[in-house]
Design a protein around this nucleic acid. Structure first.
Length: 479
RNA sequence: CGGGGCGUGGCGCAGUCUGGUAGCGCGCUUGCCUUGGGCGCAAGAGGUCCCCGGUUCGAAUCCGGGCGCCCCGACCA
C-alpha cells in the first residue's frame, strides 16, 4: 500500500528505484544477504517474460531441460578462463549429510560445465547434432554489492546451450539468439537496445565471442540486458565433446550459450518508470487494464458493478488481462494511485454518469493526468482497448528511443567524450586495444558496452589514442 | 578492504550537540461519515530507544567496545 510519494526519479534515481521495487510489491530482500524474494506481482511479470521468450525458443527448435544445482568443483576447473572468471564468486558446499565431502560442490553460477560433461556422453555422431537446449533456473554468484533485480546473489534466468558440427552453424546460432533477444526487447518490452559485440575484457569467461544487447536506463547508464556467447571449441575441448563426422573423423563440437535474467525486470522499471511509479509495457504487464468502479449509493453501486463485470468479461474474452477493483473501503482516487504505482498501462473508470451514457473513461498510464484521459463507448470496448494498448506500447518505445538518442553523443575529442559519458553514451571510434579501453575506464569509469552490429561503416580515429579505427563502440557507465 | 551515513512501536522519522516521565506522521483496531484523484472526525492498541560495559541521583542522549544495515568506490560480462 502506498503511504507517501515516491522519491523523485530525477533527483535520486537509485533511491527512487529501490523504493519503487519494494512499494509496488515486486520484490524484497530475503533474510539472506543479497538474496531476493520475488513477490507475486513481480513473478507474474517474469512469467510473461518467460512465455514471450519461450515461444521464440520453441519456434527455433530449442527444448527445455533441467540440470543439477550442484556441480563438482573439478568441472569448473576444467576450462581455464572459466575458472579464472568465476572462482571469486562461487558458493561452495563442503559438507553433505553431516560428512565432509571428498570433493566440494559448487552452487552453479552457470551450467556450461555440467552440461558439457553430459554432452560428452550423449554426443557421438554428426547425426546427434545440433543439440539445442534451454534451461529455466536460478544461479548463484557471490557478489559484493547487490541491488534488487539488477545484481542479486541468487537470480532467475534462462540459460540456453547448444552444440553444433561447424563453426559457422554455431556462430549463426549465437547471432540468431541475439536477434531473438533484440526482437523481444523491442516488440515485447518496448525497450530500444543496441545489439553488439563485447570487448575481450568484458566477454564471458570461456567465450570466444560475446554479444549483448545494451539498453540505456532513465539516468543515462547502461544495462547489459541479455547476452549470447560463441564458445568456439573451448568447452568442447575441456570436456571432450566430440562427434564422428560423415567421413569418419573425430571432431570437437562448436558450442554456444545465451541468457537473459530477472535483471531485465530492472531494465523495464528503469526505462519506463516515472515519478508516479512503474510503467509496465502492455505486452508484458501482469494486468493490462484495470476497471475502477465509482459510486455513491447502493443503487449506483449495483448498477456500476453490473456494467463493470460485463465489461470485464468482454475484455477477458478478447484475451486482455483485465482486473476489476471491487475493493471496499478505499476511494476511487486511492485506487487510481495504487494502480498507477503498479504500472497498469490502462485504467478504465466507470461511474454512474458513464453507465447512463454507456461509456467509460480510459486513462493512459504513459500520459498521467488529464491529457491521458479519453471517453470511450462500452460498445466495442475490447477493440478500443486492444488498439490503445498497442499505441501505448509504441509510445513507450518511441519515448525511450528518443531519450537514448538525446543522450548519445558523438564526441569530437576525448574531452567531449568525458563529458558525454557523465550523463549518457558516447558513440566513438575505438582502435580495439585493451589498453585504451582500460585507461578510459580508469579515467572516466565508463566501459565499452559493445561494438554495435548495425554500423554504417566508415573509418575514423580512436577517441583515446588517435590511431586508425574501423568501428564505432558505445561507451557508458554501467549497472 | 577504503570513504560517508544510519540503527528509536509494523513502516518512515524527530529527539542525541546542551542527560531529567518515549514523541510525530503513516499504517493498524473500533464507531460514525465518505467514494469522479491517495476522504474526514472521534476513541484505542502497539516501543528491551541494535547489543555489552562504564560515568551519573538519573542515559535514547555522554564515554569505551562490539554487531548490523544503507550509499559511494574496489569487485561484478
Amino acid at each position: 500500500m502506498p503511504e507517501e510519494k515516491l522519491p523523485s526519479r530525477s533527483e535520486d534515481f537509485s533511491e527512487w528505484y529501490n523504493q519503487l521495487v519494494v512499494r509496488a510489491q515486486l520484490a524484497d530482500y530475503a533474510p539472506v544477504r543479497g538474496c531476493m524474494v520475488v513477490r507475486p506481482y513481480g513473478w507474474a511479470l517474469w512469467e510473461n517474460i518467460q512465455q514471450a521468450l519461450d515461444r521464440r525458443f520453441k519456434a527455433t527448435g530449442h527444448q527445455n531441460v533441467a540440470f543439477p544445482l550442484l556441480i563438482p568443483r573439478s568441472f569448473i576447473d576444467k576450462e581455464k578462463s572459466h575458472v579464472e572468471g568465476f572462482s571469486p564468486e562461487l558458493a561452495v558446499v563442503t559438507i553433505g549429510g553431516g560428512e565432509e565431502l571428498a570433493e566440494p560442490l559448487v552452487v552453479r553460477p552457470t551450467s556450461e560445465t555440467i552440461i558439457g560433461h553430459m554432452w560428452a556422453k550423449w554426443i557421438q555422431s554428426h547425426r546427434d547434432l545440433p543439440v539445442l537446449m534451454n534451461q529455466w533456473n536460478s544461479v548463484v554468484r557471490w557478489e559484493l554489492r547487490t541491488k534488487l533485480f539488477l545484481r542479486t546473489l541468487e537470480f532467475y534466468w534462462q540459460e540456453g546451450h547448444t552444440a553444433h558440427a561447424t563453426r559457422e552453424e554455431a556462430e549463426s546460432e549465437t547471432r540468431q539468439m541475439l536477434d531473438i533477444y533484440t526482437d523481444f526487447a523491442v516488440n515485447d518490452a518496448a525497450i530500444p537496445v543496441s545489439p553488439g559485440r563485447k570487448s575481450d575484457a568484458e566477454k564471458f569467461a570461456g567465450a570466444e565471442t560475446t554479444y549483448s544487447i545494451e539498453a540505456m536506463m532513465g539516468d543515462g547508464k547502461a544495462l547489459q540486458s541479455g547476452t549470447s556467447h560463441f564458445l568456439g571449441q573451448n568447452f568442447a575441448r575441456a570436456f571432450e565433446i566430440q562427434y564422428l563426422d560423415a567421413s569418419g573423423q573425430l571432431q570437437h563440437c562448436w558450442t554456444t550459450s545465451w541468457g537473459l535474467s530477472t535483471r531485465f525486470i530492472g531494465a523495464i522499471i528503469m526505462v519506463h518508470g516515472d515519478d508516479q511509479g512503474l510503467v509496465m509495457p502492455p505486452k508484458l504487464a501482469p494486468v493490462q487494464a484495470v476497471i475502477v468502479p465509482i459510486f455513491k449509493t447502493d443503487a449506483e453501486k449495483a448498477a456500476v458493478l453490473e456494467t463493470a463485470r460485463k465489461a470485464k468479461a468482454g475484455l477477458a474474452d478478447a484475451g486482455i488481462r483485465v482486473t476489476l477493483d471491487e475493493r471496499d473501503g478505499v476511494s476511487p482516487g486511492w485506487k487510481f494511485n495504487d494502480w498507477e504505482m503498479r504500472g497498469v498501462p490502462l485504467r478504465i473508470e466507470l461511474g454512474p454518469r458513464d453507465v447512463a451514457k454507456q461509456s467509460c473513461v480510459l486513462a493512459r498510464r504513459d500520459r498521467p493526468g488529464k491529457e491521458g484521459k479519453t471517453f470511450a463507448a462500452l460498445d466495442g470496448l475490447s477493440q478500443t482497448v486492444a488498439q490503445l494498448l498497442g499505441e501505448i506500447h509504441q509510445s513507450l518505445y518511441n519515448r525511450a528511443l528518443e531519450f537514448r538518442k538525446t543522450n548519445t553523443k558523438d564526441p569530437a575529442n576525448y574531452d567531449e567524450f568525458k563529458v558525454a559519458v557523465e550523463s549518457g553514451f558516447a558513440s566513438s571510434f575505438w582502435c580495439g586495444a585493451s589498453d585504451c579501453e582500460a585507461k578510459i575506464k580508469e579515467e572516466t569509469r565508463a566501459t565499452m558496452r559493445c561494438i554495435p552490429l548495425d554500423q554504417a561503416g566508415g573509418a575514423g580515429s580512436c577517441i583515446f589514442c588517435g590511431k586508425p579505427a574501423t568501428a564505432r563502440a558505445i561507451f557508458g557507465k554501467a549497472y
